[in-house]
Design a binder for these strands. Structure first.
Lengths: 199, 199
DNA sequence: GTCTATATCAGGATAGAC
DNA sequence: GTCTATCCTGATATAGAC
């Protein structure tokens, strides 16, 4: 749980970003949040942009962790038993729609980074890499469900599902879409894509 | 084309926001862009927040205008002839994926607005209203294609399509998704939803 | 209505001690 | 590695002349 200062700063940054947004991140508020001085932040991360970059990395690692089931909500991961692939896909997508602090932080920060990348090209590289690997993972899960579907079709489905997820997520976080409804919409989309891949 | 200063400021603000984002809008850059002094901006709009409010209003009015076909890309709107409903639906969605300055400006500003609403609850009201009416319009178009589909199913499809559109739009604007590919993905999603509604 | 200053201040960044 | 203190840029906003 990061007793080291560096880790504490990153965790603090994730919380502050979730609260204020990337553009609302103030070095001093972050210092207070993490219980350190501003100078220490600069010592570890060079400048504000450095904080942002490393926080993005930190967040996507964390998302990988909870997405790949190590601490799945149902504890099913403890049994080494192979999961139903469709159930696994749904879970991995629906995990993003939970009202838990860590999930909310990740979603918020992710949305912020995505939105910031529109104006800050230096963020795009990492973001593109993370997105690509996410799409790839989802395509793999789809491939587990429809082994005969051609790769490009799997990728396209994964792009739509993850794109929809991002769109709905922002609506959720901005209070425009209740969580259960978001989950319903996404589940139905999964059903449609799976059906499509069997043709 | 707004020869008056006030209009020039709003047009300039739309351009600057598209370039720098809502949070990157600097009063001085706006002044230069619009060819006026900063003092004049404050004279007309009171403060930075005032500029933002009026610009967003300006932008959503403009989006209504081009979305409702007055200057459709093909000029088909001049003939009073009833359009093919599916073609009409695709057009109205794909209009958001064009690399024209005005469209880019509107999409960018809309994305910014949506992202800002996550942290600024006072923006949520207008945004929710606009979103709802958009969803309603799309559901109507879907109803024109599948007249027998029940209303809730139409709404759900419209929510998914508009949600996907927003998600893909941000990816496009952040350089993660080429425009033609975004269009393909969206078209296929339309096809899937229409097919679904016929069951 | 519009401009040329300029006051004011927040916040990013650094120096230097420990 | 970490802190205290402080500098200084850049951005909002205002005063006052025309």
């Amino acid at each position: 749980m990061a007793t080291d200062r560096r880790g504490a700063i990153l965790e603090g940054a994730a919380r502050v970003i979730a609260r204020r947004g990337v553009r609302g991140l103030r070095m001093e508020e972050l210092a207070t949040e993490a219980g350190v001085s501003t100078a220490l932040i600069y010592y570890h991360f060079k400048d504000r942009a450095g904080v942002l970059r490393h926080t993005l990395e930190f967040i996507s690692d964390r998302a990988d962790r909870y997405t790949s089931g190590e601490d799945g909500a149902d504890g099913d991961a403890r049994t080494g038993a192979p999961q139903d692939p469709r159930w696994e896909l749904e879970q991995s997508l629906l995990l993003e729609f939970q009202d838990l602090p860590e999930v909310r932080e990740n979603s918020t920060a992710w949305g912020e980074l995505r939105a910031s990348a529109v104006f800050e090209p230096e963020l795009r590289g990492d973001l593109a890499r993370a997105t690509l690997s996410w799409i790839h993972d989802v395509a793999d899960l789809l491939g587990g469900i429809r082994p005969t579907a051609p790769a490009p079709a799997l990728t396209a489905s994964a792009e739509r599902l993850t794109g929809l997820l991002e769109g709905l997520s922002t609506r959720w976080l901005s209070g425009a879409l209740p969580l259960p409804h978001a989950r319903e919409l996404l589940k139905e989309a999964v059903a449609l894509e799976i059906e499509r891949l069997s043709r």
